[in-house]
Design a binder for these strands. Structure first.
Length: 272
DNA sequence: AGCGGAACCTGTCGGC
DNA sequence: TGCCGACAGGTTCCGC
C-alpha cells in the first residue's frame, strides 16, 4: 500500500489513539514479521506504554515509555487496524496483535513484505540511516539532488524510488510527481538543471501534501486504522490510467516498465 | 562503484 | 470451472 501520505495518515491516527495506552499482551501469529525471537518480542513489550508515534519516509517509529523503539514498515499490503470490538476472532492476515485496555492494535499483512523491528538506536539503524530527506522536509534543496544524482546514469523515475536523497516516494507518487513536473520518467537525473530540480521539489511537496490532505490513495489494499479509505485515488492524473486521455492534452497515457516497475506518463506533456 | 535483475510471499484478475 | 501467467502500492542483496 503505503507511501508517505498513507503512512503519515496512519501515523496521525495511531498517535491519537495510542499515546498513553499500555500494552497488556502481544501475540505473534507469524514469527517472520518481527525479525527476532517472538517470545522475546512479546515479553519485552508487555507492560510498556506508547509514548510517541513518529515517521520517517515510509517507516513508522513507535517510542515506548521504556526499552527499544519499534520500527514498522507496511511493505505492499500492510495495515494497522484498531479494533474496539470485543470480538477476538483472528482474520487470515493478522500477523501480530497488541491487546490494550479497551482495544486491540492489529498488524495485518497479506504479502508479508512488511515487518516490525525493535531497535535501541533509531537514528543509527541501517534502514533509517539509509534514508534521505523526508519527502515533506522543507530543507531539501536542488543542490542536494544534484550532489546525489550528478554521477548516476539512472533515470529520474528509478532515482525517485531509491528513498535517498528523498524518502517516502513510491510508484504511485513518482508517476504523479513526474507528470506534474512535466518530466519523462526516462530522463536521466544527472541531466536535470536547477530549474527542473526546483520544479521537481515543488511538485514533490505539492503532490505529497495534497495526497495527505485527502488521507492517501486507496487503490486496493490501503485502509486507514478505522478501515476507511483514502480519497486521493480520485485525483490521480496518470497512475494506472493507461490508454485514458491525458488531463492536459488528451493524448492517451502510456505505460512502460522501468526497473521492474510500471511507469505511467503522457508521451506528449512529459519530455526527456 | 554502480547498475539491473532476482528474491522475499501472497493474492487477484484476465485469458484460454 | 480450472489452470496459468501477469501484475501488484517495497526493499535488499547478489552478480556483473
Amino acid at each position: 500500500m503505503p507511501e508517505l501520505p498513507e503512512v503519515e495518515t496512519i501515523r496521525r491516527e495511531l498517535s491519537q489513539a495510542l499515546v498513553g495506552e499500555q500494552i497488556y499482551s502481544v501475540e505473534v501469529h507469524r514469527p517472520s514479521v518481527v525479525h527476532e525471537d517472538p517470545t522475546d518480542f512479546s515479553r519485552d513489550l508487555e507492560g510498556c506504554f506508547f509514548q510517541q508515534v513518529d515517521r520517517k519516509g515510509k517507516y513508522l517509529i513507535f517510542q515506548f515509555s521504556q526499552g527499544p523503539a519499534m520500527l514498522a514498515h507496511l511493505g505492499m499490503s500492510g495495515k494497522f487496524i484498531l479494533d474496539r470490538t470485543s470480538d477476538p476472532t483472528l482474520q487470515t492476515h493478522d500477523r501480530v496483535v497488541f491487546t490494550l485496555k479497551d482495544q486491540r492494535l492489529v498488524f495485518s499483512e497479506s504479502r508479508c513484505f512488511g515487518f516490525l523491528e525493535r531497535t535501541q538506536d533509531v537514528a543509527n539503524h541501517p534502514r533509517i540511516k539509509r534514508l534521505g530527506f523526508d519527502g515533506l522536509d522543507p530543507n531539501l534543496k536542488p543542490h542536494d539532488l544534484k550532489q546525489a544524482w550528478g554521477k548516476s546514469n539512472r533515470s529520474i523515475k528509478t532515482l525517485l524510488l531509491q528513498q535517498s536523497p528523498i524518502a517516502g516516494i513510491g510508484n504511485i507518487y513518482a508517476a504523479e510527481i513526474l507528470f506534474g513536473a512535466k518530466l519523462h520518467p526516462e530522463t536521466l537525473g544527472k541531466n536535470l538543471g536547477d530549474q527542473a530540480l526546483t520544479k521537481l521539489i515543488d511538485e514533490t511537496r505539492r503532490i505529497l501534501s495534497l495526497a495527505l490532505e485527502h488521507n492517501g490513495t486507496s487503490i486496493s489494499d490501503y485502509r486507514r486504522v478505522d478501515d476507511k479509505t483514502g480519497e486521493f485515488q480520485n485525483f490521480l492524473q496518470v497512475y494506472g490510467k493507461t490508454g485514458q486521455p491525458c488531463p492536459v492534452c488528451a493524448k492517451p497515457i502510456s505505460r512502460s516498465v522501468q526497473a521492474q516497475r510500471s511507469s505511467f506518463f503522457c508521451p506528449d506533456c512529459q519530455k526527456i
